[in-house]
Design a protein around this nucleic acid. Structure first.
Lengths: 149, 149
DNA sequence: GAAGGTTCATAGCATCCGCAATGAAATCGC
DNA sequence: GCGATTTCATTGCGGATGCTATGAACCTTC
C-alpha cells in the first residue's frame, strides 16, 4: 500500500439513505417475522399472500404479484407452501384455465383471525414508540413509494 | 367455504409500516445494486465492506460486523469474494492472531475512487427527488434507528 | 380454424443466506 | 501455569431466493 495513494473521497455510510432504509427495514421486519415464524410458522412472503387473500377473497397469482410487491415466482412458491400447510386452497378458474383461484381454507381464516389483530397492535406499538417521528417517516415513505420506479 | 364464516378484521397492508419500509428499502437498494453489479460486479454486502474499508483503513471482521449492520459470516464471505477479486487484502494481526486485518488493494482503492462519487451523486439525486419529504424521512429513520434493537 | 404471439403459473438451476458447528487463539480463574 | 471459558473467523449444510426456461391456455389475425 504505497503512501502516495491519492486519498479517497469522504463517504459516510451511516448517512446514506439506501443504507439507512435497508437497516431500518430489516430490523422492523425481522422483529415481526420472528413472531410470525415462532407462533404460526409462516414467512414474510407467505404472510403477504395471506393478508392479500384475507382482504380480497379469491385471487390469482398475478393479482397478488401486482399488488403486494412480490415477483410471480415468489407468490407461486409461497402459495405452494401455504397449500401444503392447508392454509389456502387452489382451484382452476373455469373461464380462464391459465389462472388459479386462491382462497383461504377455514384453517387459514382461523389463523388470520388471530394474526391480523396481532399485526394491528404491532403497528400501534410502533406508532406509539416513534411518536411525532412516525408522521414524518410516513410522509417520507409516501413520497418515496408513490413514484413509479 | 361456509358462508357463516366470521368476517376477518380489516387490515390494509399498504399502510403497514414494516411493509412500506421493506418495499421502499428494496426499491432504493436495488436501483443502486444494479449499478454496482453491472459496472463493478459487486453485491451490497461487498459494497458495505468496501465502504467501511475505504473509510477506516485497516479493520477486522469484527469491526465491520459491529458497525455495518452485518453478521460476522456475511462479512467473512463478502471479504472472501473481494479477496478473490483482488480488491482487498487479508493479513494476520500480529498482536492478536485471531484477528484479521483487511485493507483495500490498489485495485480496490481505484475502484472506490470511482464508486464513491457515484454513490454521492446518487444520494444527492435522491434528496433532490424527495424534496421536503427527505428531511421528514430522515427524522423518522433517525428515531427508528437510534433504538437499541 | 390454424399459426404466431402473449399471458399465466410453475420448475430447474445456480447462487445466496442464516444458523449452528468448528477450529484456532487469547483470556480468565484458581 | 494450566485447564476452562470466551472471542474471532470461517465453513457445512439445509433451505430460501432470483433468474430463466418451460409448458399450458388464451388471444389475435388472417
Amino acid at each position: 500500500m504505497p503512501d502516495d495513494a491519492p486519498p479517497l473521497p469522504e463517504f459516510d455510510l451511516y448517512s446514506f439513505t439506501p443504507y439507512r432504509l435497508a437497516v431500518a427495514a430489516k430490523r422492523t421486519s425481522e422483529e415481526l417475522a420472528r413472531k410470525y415464524r415462532e407462533r404460526f410458522g409462516i414467512s414474510i412472503p407467505e404472510w403477504r399472500v395471506l393478508v392479500h387473500l384475507a382482504h380480497s377473497g379469491k385471487v390469482s397469482v398475478r393479482d397478488i404479484e401486482a399488488r403486494v410487491a412480490m415477483e410471480k415466482y415468489e407468490v407461486s412458491r409461497a402459495a405452494k407452501r401455504l397449500r401444503e400447510a392447508n392454509l389456502i386452497e387452489r382451484k382452476e378458474n373455469p373461464t380462464d384455465r391459465r389462472l388459479v383461484i386462491l382462497t383461504l381454507t377455514p384453517a387459514g381464516r382461523k389463523m388470520m383471525a388471530e394474526l391480523l389483530p396481532l399485526a394491528k397492535s404491532h403497528q400501534a406499538a410502533l406508532e406509539a414508540r416513534l411518536g411525532d417521528a412516525f408522521e414524518q417517516l410516513e410522509a417520507g415513505l409516501e413520497q418515496l413509494l408513490k413514484e413509479p420506479e
